[in-house]
């Protein structure tokens, strides 16, 4: 894929991503694809850090606390996927400049199934083409969006064991290295 379309002049995104180098990036404009790639880099890095340095260390290696879907009731750590979603929801509360979500063709929670034809196409593409991203443009609610989809791969046994064993999971044969879903990033084209 890799559609190259237009330039983004979203100062908020540029500033958030590039820090002190934001000025030149904003002045030149930045391609949607690059912005989406950089956003994804931040998201996946933060999630990996949380998974390794907080959840894996405290829950699996040191065993001082568990991680649970019902983290409030269980007085436990937030699952890495939940942390990712809470971040996405906080972004949605604060800006319409971009949005992102963690989706799957086999979601435990049905609300994380694809809702648009392009989400369906993108999730299928990253599943069929390991190592590649998906980029496209779609119209939603009367507005045009640049949509990027990145593979979410089973990196730790905790990820795929939980999905394989969860009572609501529609797929139970995930293995390490499998694409379990995808991160979808949207930026309005204007």
């Amino acid at each position: 894929m890799g559609n190259k379309i237009g330039k983004i002049k979203a100062s908020i995104l540029g500033a958030a991503l590039m820090g002190t180098t934001a000025t030149s990036a904003m002045a030149d404009g930045m391609e949607y694809e690059t912005v989406a790639d950089l956003l994804h880099l931040v998201m996946s890095s933060d999630r990996t850090v949380y998974t390794r340095m907080v959840v894996n260390r405290l829950a699996n290696e040191e065993g001082v606390i568990t991680a649970s879907e019902h983290f409030v009731d269980d007085k436990a750590l937030v699952l890495p996927a939940q942390m990712f979603r809470f971040g996405a929801e906080m972004v949605a509360e604060n800006t319409d400049e971009f949005s992102y979500s963690l989706l799957s063709l086999w979601p435990i929670n049905k609300q994380n199934a694809p809702t648009t034809p392009m989400e369906e196409e993108g999730l299928q593409y990253i599943n069929d083409n390991p190592g590649e991203n998906f980029y496209g443009v779609e119209e939603l609610g009367g507005e045009e969006y640049f949509t990027a989809v990145y593979a979410d791969v089973a990196v730790a046994p905790a990820c795929y064991t939980c999905h394989n064993e969860h009572k609501d999971s529609p797929r139970t044969d995930f293995e390490g290295g499998d694409v379990m879903g995808g991160v979808v990033i949207r930026i309005p084209v204007n």
């Binding site: 409030v72 949005s99 809702t115 939603l140 609610g141 969006y145």
Partner: peptide, 19 residues
């Protein structure tokens, strides 16, 4: 209430079909 249907869940454009 740990709101089951918070506004922030419906804001992303992927939810536009429900709007």
């Amino acid at each position: 209430s740990d709101d089951s249907h918070p506004i922030k869940k419906f804001k992303p454009p992927r939810m536009s079909a429900y709007w």
